[in-house]
């Protein structure tokens, strides 16, 4: 008999036990491991996809930020350039104004200096003229300048034309203040008396007179009362002299300017 039924039964049992044991120790662990690996790989792939998407998104965001930054930079740069140009213009204007003010101030100073020099020259010239005249009179005519001037003044006073004389007389009557006689130098007592006498005789009245010395303002002798004035001075002569000197200076300056190009060594031959 080829079939032993006990063995058949035992083998049946053996097979079922083997199937259960292999399911427990072989198939399930291996399949679980395979599934776990598949899930892990799928998860990693999904993770990689997510990371790629995230990276793409971040890249897009970065590019956007970069563009915004570039725009802002360009805007700021143009604003800064405009501001710098405006500031430059402002500083230039300020500097120009300051330069103009300085120039005006310097011109003013120069003008003041010239005026001061002119006055000093004028005074000095007067003094010199008076000194020369005084000396010349003393040497040639044996007379003092003051005496001659007082004589000249009294003579002119007496020869005053009627309207002027009348105006003076009215003015003297109208005021109680004394008439004022101003001279460039101290008049001696004799000359003062002569002038007083001449005034009294001219206006036929006893006119109170006050003598005053003002060398910086008067270049001769001057009689003044309320609104009326009569004088003899060398101011006209001095003006003539000043004009002559000025013309001379101008002529010299013109000559220097004209001579300047001729003396230029680099001038090309004509």
């Amino acid at each position: 008999m080829l079939i032993d039924w006990f063995t058949v039964g035992a083998q049946l049992l053996n097979f079922l036990v083997l199937a259960w044991l292999l399911k427990r120790f072989l198939y399930r662990p291996i399949l679980d491991a395979l599934d776990a690996r598949e899930q892990r790989i799928a998860a990693e792939l999904a993770d990689a996809d997510a990371k790629r998407a995230e990276a793409k998104e971040e890249r897009a965001e970065f590019q956007h930020k970069n563009e915004v930054f570039e725009r802002q930079r360009a805007t700021l740069l143009s604003e800064a350039t405009e501001a710098a140009q405006a500031e430059r213009q402002r500083l230039l204007d300020e500097a120009r104004l300051a330069a103009d003010a300085l120039k005006a101030k310097r011109m003013q100073a120069l003008s003041d200096d010239a005026r001061g020099l002119d006055q000093a020259l004028r005074r000095r010239t007067e003094q010199e003229v008076f000194a020369i005249a005084r000396q010349t009179l003393a040497d040639l005519a044996d007379a003092s300048l003051e005496q001659r001037m007082a004589e000249l003044f009294t003579r002119r006073l007496r020869a005053l034309d009627p309207p002027a004389k009348e105006g003076f007389a009215n003015a003297l009557k109208a005021t109680s203040a004394p008439a004022r006689v101003r001279s460039a130098f101290d008049l001696p007592a004799a000359q003062r008396a002569a002038i007083q006498t001449a005034i009294n005789e001219t206006f036929s009245a006893d006119v109170p007179v006050e003598f005053e010395t003002a060398p910086e303002r008067i270049c001769g002798i001057e009689l003044s009362t309320e609104g009326q004035k009569m004088a003899w001075s060398i101011a006209d002569y001095l003006a003539s002299l000043a004009q002559g000197v000025e013309e001379l200076v101008k002529a010299q300056a013109a000559g220097e300017v004209k001579a300047q190009p001729e003396s230029t060594p680099d001038a090309p031959p004509t």
Binding site: D4, T7, L12, N14
Partner: peptide, 10 residues
């Protein structure tokens, strides 16, 4: 063994 193969076939 035919017993084994019979058992498997069963």
């Amino acid at each position: 063994s035919l017993s084994t193969t019979a058992a498997l076939a069963l």
